[in-house]
Design a protein around this nucleic acid. Structure first.
Ligand code: FES
Ligand code: FES
Lengths: 141, 141
DNA sequence: CTTTTATCCTACCAAATTAGTAGGATAAGT
DNA sequence: ACTTATCCTACTAATTTGGTAGGATAAAAG
């Protein structure tokens, strides 16, 4: 029961972009890589997924920095999770009307569904603006 | 972000035992295996872990059934999870005073800590008696 | 206009984890 | 004596994870 490292790096990447929301020049991949202590090459994959999910974009052409495609406030933790994974389904029985392999009705399914929903709601209700604000208030002390 | 199948099978196994709490003869492994559509051999591992975690015990000697070691009410979903995994830590930064690899203070850690706590509380607050009751009320309709 | 550099894109890969199977020992019941 | 259910240890195939490597492309710097 772990989140993968890509999602974690992606969140910190998005946090940097959220902190630079006002910066029209965007942020360079290599600067992010340095701050996050991750190779530029690895960050390549992460940013590629974020782009594919339409969460970030280049400011200009090939050698330009990155910006968020929308307001940080409108990007949730779950949005970022979704750039790397399918819809949250903590067990397979919850997938696409997935059925339980058991003979009889499985009462656990209701429990899993509730837990799944709770985790998802938590991720949906936290946005990057809020995280950026927290970051500022912590680092200003 | 998935729970493993062992935990899932274990929960259903424990549910069967909870439903047979009053049955002094215990429940046989092979009967559980049949109900859960899982090989007896695989269930071997699952039950071994449950025993190691002191959640179930044999009623008698070698060929006897299993019973819960405590009241179903006193066994939480998290107890069962813990029979197969270490303390819940949805990212490694949360482990044993684990530090973040970042240069600066990582504000994400507070978020992860909160989510981790929320998931854990959810699992801790559901017990096998409650699940057994739900099972009965669903299957009696 | 040449060199550098940052993004882009596709392969590949080693290690770890998952979800089991296999084989047999032990001991109780028939 | 035979069957059978639990117990115990190894092994393994498939998948996932967490990356690295190589090079193409295009912009900017000199
Ligand atoms: S078997 Fe599907 S949730 Fe229990
Ligand atoms: S790096 Fe540890 S939680 Fe962000």
């Amino acid at each position: 029961m772990k989140f993968n490292t890509k999602t974690r790096y992606a969140l910190r990447t998005m946090l940097e972009l959220a902190l630079n929301e006002e910066n029209d020049e965007g942020v360079f991949q290599k600067d992010i890589a340095e701050n996050q202590v991750v190779s530029v090459k690895y960050l390549d994959h992460i940013i590629a997924s974020l782009k594919a999910a339409d969460l970030v974009e280049n400011v200009g052409g090939k050698k330009s920095g990155y910006k968020l495609t929308r307001l940080a406030e409108e990007i949730s933790v779950y949005d970022i999770y979704r750039a790397f994974e399918d819809e949250l389904a903590i067990i397979d029985c919850l997938l696409h009307g997935g059925k339980c392999p058991t003979k009889h009705l499985c009462v656990m399914k209701d429990y899993w569904t509730g837990l799944n929903q709770s985790i998802r709601s938590n991720m949906e209700s936290m946005n990057m603006k809020e995280l950026a604000n927290r970051h500022i208030s912590v680092n200003d002390k």
